[in-house]
Design a binder for these strands. Structure first.
Lengths: 211, 211, 211, 211
DNA sequence: ACCTAAGCGAGACGGTACGTCATGTCTTGCG
DNA sequence: CGCAAGACATGACGTACCGTCTCGCTTAGGT
């Protein structure tokens, strides 16, 4: 009755090993960064043989995607009472995540690798990117309920605009922190929120600082 | 030191070498991508010894930053008549640049490396990022002249909002193409322009397609 | 009455497995040679699990000794009518055996291993070497009966000279084939027989060829 | 003018490295034996990188042949006054050589490998085997001069019988020590000399012991 | 007819060595 | 003296076997 897995014989894979490897990968990312991380070192840290690691992941890219994906699932969006507050909350949360060294060094690196590796791109999309779009959908649904935003006209338009908002918000934070190399401070967050609320005209006007 | 060049043999190399190396680096990025690019291969392609290469650049990161920086200087912003048109133009131009394989594979990679290498981050900022902020300044100046945007209140606010706009626009395009892995098509560009013009409420409303 | 092994319960070992493993070992020696033979491959060929194999043999050396030992028991020495004919017969037979790829590749290899492994040397001696000394004893007994050789003076001398003759004859054939890498052809065999009959003076004189 | 070697540019190979590697190989053979010798360990012992080692030798087999070949060139044959004395001298010398652990463990192993590797067999023949045939030729020439042996009838016969004598003498010693695993003591040497002098009838007669 | 203990296949496990590759440095000899 | 050619020490790569260890089954003998 139960759809048994195709191979049922042999010694089963150690579940503990998977967890140890992913944890060791994150630790190694913190200590060494992406480019100096070696799978041999990860295996040693995890108390595992290199072969065990290669049995489960095709290479460094895939391993790091899995190791980092879990971090992104920690993001959440409680109701802060208004669209602006929700946006501010999620932006700060995302910035805090990108401030963690393991996320910072790994995210751009695997994205860079994915430009020449379609399966990797798909894995990143499935494990990391698409899962965070839920935050946009939740936020928008609340804003619609509050009357802050008009209701989407159709499913396709809804998806399209969600993608756009996601790219703008996530892209802005990533670019600010990793490309421009500057902190996501209150001033910048308030500027972004203003821009999202009212477009460029709102963004260029000075804002009351709260710092 | 003195550039003597009456009829000396063997001398002309040095000047040509730089150009040949950077060109070879771009070609290698196209063929191999960032992670499989090796300095030995670049040297061979450039018809140069590895020693010559290491005499001029500290490593792969620095070389690639220099090789790619030139591409970004091609961006320009002619007056398209309105703020919206200017934004659309620069977004499309930037997207076209990021579609080139040598830019795509290299940009994220060096940014990733720069998360643990402050001198590299500075080099990227100087050679690539900051030079493109001129586009924002030019665009805003025109928009102010046209009365599309209010004048900035002070130099500091002006710089701050220019940084914000730059992060939002560039970040959105980079995220769309490299992280989400989707094309920057007309629909998306128009959505972005609408969002920049009027904020989220404008972005979620359906737009007249031009595709 | 029979002093059964201490543990008598449980499923008995499969007799078929032993035969299959030894046969698979010989086949693998033919296909791969000693150094590329792996126990995993032998197990697969024999349709047996690696554990089954390790339950019975300590390692590759022991397994191969057992696998090739059987080949050597095929040697025999029918009465050819004279000492010279008996020697020629046994030399040709031994040469034919050493021409089989599984014997050729395995014999020297296990002997080489045995230089640092006393138990292995003993196993080789018991399973292979000493069993073939019977051929010398049979041949000498016949020659004595024919009056071709004087009777040995004592048991110790008899054993000593049998060892010597064995080393000389077997050593010559092995050296000819495996070290010098040349064929044991009629000319060489006749030369050897002449040398054994009359010593070096006989060996350096030209012999009537029969090829 | 001089026919320079094809490649004349670049840093030349270190002559010191070659010597250090061969010496380290012999030391490793003594410590570990053939089967546990690893090229990585040899490289470490020689204070050399693995790549340097692989640049010069194709693998373990070739390296070991070169490392032990030098040992065999130490053999020599001073005039001991009679054929029997010359034979005894060279047999003892060869036995002493085979008693050295690096020669013992390596010789049979490379011979075993050579059964499936024709280039290796040729290398062994050129570097080790053929070079020792000189001893047979020297010994025979002296014996002929002394009148102990008849002169060879032709060059071909001379070569053939030299090969035979070499296989018999060297084969007997090798077989005695490595296969039978017994010492080449005086009794055995005298037996061998007697056999070579007068054939089997001389060998089976008891000899005056000198031990 | 059950019980029990060992054998069995499959295959994952921690290891070790492999042979190759790229890095960044260092000698050479040529021009 | 600059430079190409390429050897060098270093160290990671990804693979192959090793010999051991679970697993979930047979498969017998003793009761």
């Amino acid at each position: 009755m139960a759809p048994r897995s195709p191979a049922r014989t042999g010694r089963p894979r150690s579940a503990a090993a998977d967890a140890a490897i992913l944890e060791a990968t994150r630790a190694a990312l913190v200590d060494l960064g992406w480019s100096k991380l070696t799978l041999g070192d990860v295996a040693t840290r995890a108390g595992v043989a290199k072969t065990t690691l290669y049995r489960r992941w095709a290479g460094k890219n895939e391993l790091v995607v899995d190791a980092v994906a879990a971090l992104f699932d920690e993001l959440e969006l409680p109701d802060r009472g208004s669209l602006a507050a929700d946006v501010e909350y999620v932006v700060r949360q995302f910035a805090a995540l990108l401030d963690r060294p393991e996320a910072k060094t790994a995210l751009m690196a695997v994205v860079a690798e994915s430009t020449r590796d379609e399966p990797l791109r798909a894995r990143i999309r499935d494990s990391i990117v698409d899962r965070q779009k839920r935050l946009v959908l939740v936020g928008r649904a609340r804003a619609e309920a509050r009357g802050e935003l008009p209701r989407a006209q159709g499913a396709q338009d809804a998806a399209r605009s969600a993608d756009l908002i996601f790219d703008v918000v996530a892209g802005a934070v990533v670019h600010r922190m990793l490309v421009s190399g500057q902190a996501v401070d209150s001033q910048w967050v308030h500027g972004l929120v203003a821009l999202l609320a009212g477009g460029l005209p709102s963004a260029v006007s000075p804002l009351p600082s709260d710092a």
